[in-house]
């Protein structure tokens, strides 16, 4: 059972945490319903980073050494994505060097956002205990509930002298989250689309048609909080060193899987679009990660110039779902 405290103002928590942690607040306003334009994945999986430097004789390590920092006010969709990425990068020292330094303070959403559907994919709107160290919940009567869900979280607020709150408050929180879930618009196209994808019922022709609309801009994969593909390159430095850099890649590029022989298993845009959505909603990936790769943030819908973000695609393929699976 989480312990739950009454917090009068966010500033108080802020200033307490600031004694140990650098504060990073991705949201303009903690408590806004829309997620930030950019997911917080870049705080752990950097958009561009060095993997090592080779000086002709020795390889030098270039592990990042960030100071302890707190991501203050992260919504459930993005926290679910961080938990997903934690699995993917479990043995990645660069990711882990940053991740170990981070304290995650979640914020419950109590109103649906424009493109979001976290409730449909089990990723919100309330923050799940396993995804954050601390959770904030705005009380309609004023002040905040502060829930502690990890030892690290407990350690972080030690000495704050907060009043403990009882189960009634936690039940009221559950009710508000349930009300939020009920307020999301109809999501039957999502359920039908997911069924069509996970059961492989979408014909190639349909993917090809959607593929025409994929410009290969990389916007979806850049903003997607669970996308984790990267490329690498070796850069010559002025002093003769060679620096290996990795950078965010996108599986929607034709060259992503092109081989040195020029053979390409996914040369057609439609095949790449299918692969992207299979990664998000395929059963095999769900088995590996314990959940779907989509956390319902809706960023792809908003940023895709080709109108093949999640809602647009799901509406186009929903009819391929089996009739009994609604």
């Amino acid at each position: 059972m989480m312990s739950c405290y009454l917090l009068d103002t966010l500033e108080r928590l802020h200033s307490h945490l600031a004694r140990v942690y650098q504060i990073v607040q991705p949201l303009e306003d903690v408590g806004q319903s829309a997620p930030p334009l950019v997911s917080p994945k870049g705080y752990f999986f950097a958009e561009q980073e060095n993997l090592f430097v080779f000086d002709g004789e020795c390889f030098r390590e270039t592990l990042p050494q960030p100071p302890p920092f707190v991501l203050f006010g992260v919504q459930s969709c993005d926290l679910t994505a961080i938990a997903y990425q934690d699995q993917f990068f479990a043995r990645d020292p660069y990711y882990q060097a940053r991740r170990q330094q981070a304290l995650l303070v979640g914020i419950d959403c109590v109103t649906p956002c424009e493109h979001g559907f976290c409730a449909s994919v089990d990723a919100g709107p309330g923050v799940k205990a396993g995804c954050a160290d601390l959770i904030l919940h705005a009380r309609p009567e004023g002040g905040w509930m502060l829930m502690v869900c990890s030892d690290k979280g407990g350690e972080a607020i030690r000495g704050m002298e907060l009043d403990q709150m009882d189960d009634t408050e936690l039940r009221a929180r559950d009710r508000r989250i349930d009300d939020c879930i009920a307020a999301f618009p109809d999501d039957s196209h999502l359920h039908r689309g997911i069924a069509a994808i996970s059961q492989g019922r979408v014909p190639d022709q349909q993917w090809q048609q959607l593929g025409i609309q994929c410009l290969g801009c990389s916007g979806c994969t850049t903003l997607c909080p669970t996308c984790s593909c990267y490329g690498t390159r070796d850069l010559s430095e002025d002093q003769g060193d060679i620096r290996r850099q990795r950078f965010w890649d996108s599986c929607l590029y034709e060259s992503f899987q092109r081989e040195a022989s020029q053979h390409n298993p996914s040369e057609e845009a439609g095949e790449r679009v299918r692969r992207f959505w299979t990664h998000k909603f395929g059963d095999n990936f769900a088995k590996t990660f314990g959940r779907y790769g989509c956390v319902g943030c809706g960023r792809c819908e908003q940023t895709c110039p080709g109108v093949i973000g999640v809602h647009s695609v799901m509406r186009r393929i929903a009819d391929y779902a089996p009739d009994d699976d609604v």
Binding site: L37, G42, E47, Q48, G216, C217, S218, Q302, T303, P305
Partner: peptide, 22 residues
């Protein structure tokens, strides 16, 4: 310069960019 993102409220691009912009 570490990264580039689109402006959500821009009157023309409305939170979108092409591959060159990104």
């Amino acid at each position: 310069l570490i990264s580039v993102t689109p402006q959500l409220d821009h009157p023309v691009s409305r939170g979108q960019l092409c591959s060159k912009g990104w």
